[in-house]
Design a protein around this nucleic acid. Structure first.
Lengths: 205, 205
DNA sequence: AAATATACCAGACATTTGTCTGTTTTGCAA
DNA sequence: TTGCAAAACAGACAAATGTCTGGTATATTT
């Protein structure tokens, strides 16, 4: 077969392998061979080897599908957590609620402890949490004073700042149009702590 | 060795394999064997087979590292976009700027067109964009009136709302303590449009 | 308690996969 | 034009990997 100018095929191979790696489907050397129509496995292998020499790929020698992208923030574990449409009273289980979709979130703690909700009111605009924002919540039964939390009030999930005052617990809004809610600690149903807020200004295509 | 109750090990194996698959590192049967301390490869293989029967995994028979997650929304393409620490005047290229890290973002348009910046001032608190927030920006040389944009002003990146008035362009703050900036359209260096805002209330562990 | 189903073990073997050696051909620089 | 480097070919072999058969032990159900 004809020869390509120096480096051209290699660059194409890099893009092919990168795409496969990002898709979570590491290729074998023979799959690279076939993808590019080479007669010899060794052609593919030597290109891959050169990419390793160039530092564009790393490899686990002798292991099947052993090439990978170098660590550099381009390959990292992620959680996909559910965006819940509606939270019912009672124990939170993702099997029960209505799942609108999933959000990619950096790994932290246990995936099953994370969920997301849409903010529905204006009670927290004072701290930059607007209606329509998405809050990412970690399930926990308690939280610290000052934490932004999601709690159940009248069977409705609400986002507020938690204040612990003496024997009582307050769910404090960040807007003058809303009143704080005082709850007995053992009557409080705390769904979790807000760990991230996201606002999408332009929907995904 | 002792036996676990029915389904318990299998569930753990599913979680292990899923985590590996999401990390783009499909395991071999022997890697599953080792991870769980089985003496026999067949133990791992039969659990994996059962997971396939249950529809929790799929597999390419006879292929190394052939197990994969079923298509179904739990596996989705994502972009990892750079969080830039500082933007210099001149053409934006990620090779030049200081990259602080990467953010996972749902696929939209071309990955190279997306970047993230930290908000540094309080000029946009009126619309819920606080200092320390991260804005995700799509590079574009123009934007519509009303869009939240990132522009270069005095060689400094700034987040403002774009207003187009007659022959002039205004960068409008959302706080009474800041003045709007009027720019000639051809003197405006628009870096892009803000498409998402994120606030991390609790850092990743 | 007995029967059944499931978890786990052991070993062997076929196939896939990586890798090496040796060679030819073509692009590029001197 | 010549020499060198890189692209590509060919073949063989070792090791990794998947898979199958046969078996024991424990959890669960009847």
């Amino acid at each position: 077969m004809g020869r390509t100018p120096h480096g051209q095929t290699r660059h194409k191979i890099f893009k092919f392998v990168r795409q496969r790696l990002r898709a979570g489907r590491p290729p074998t050397v023979r799959e690279v061979q076939q993808a590019f129509g080479f007669s010899a496995v060794e052609t593919a292998r030597s290109h891959l080897d050169a990419l390793v020499e160039q530092g564009l790929l790393e490899k686990e020698s002798g292991k099947a599908r052993g090439y990978r992208l170098p660590p550099g923030g381009r390959e990292r574990p992620l959680f996909l957590i559910p965006l819940l449409g509606r939270v019912q009273a009672g124990a939170l289980t993702t099997a029960v609620e209505e799942i609108e979709g999933f959000l990619p979130v950096d790994v932290r703690g246990a995936e099953e402890d994370l969920f997301a909700l849409r903010v529905r009111g204006e009670s927290m605009v004072g701290v930059g949490i607007l209606p329509g924002d998405i809050v990412i919540v970690r399930r926990q039964p308690t939280a610290a004073s000052g934490d932004v939390v999601v709690a159940l009030v009248d069977d409705e999930a609400t986002v507020k700042t938690l204040h612990v005052r003496g024997g009582a617990v307050e769910l404090v809004p960040a807007s003058p149009h809303f009143k704080k809610i005082v709850v007995e600690p053992d009557a409080l149903t705390l769904l979790g702590k807000v760990i991230e807020v996201r606002r999408v200004l332009e929907p995904t295509a």
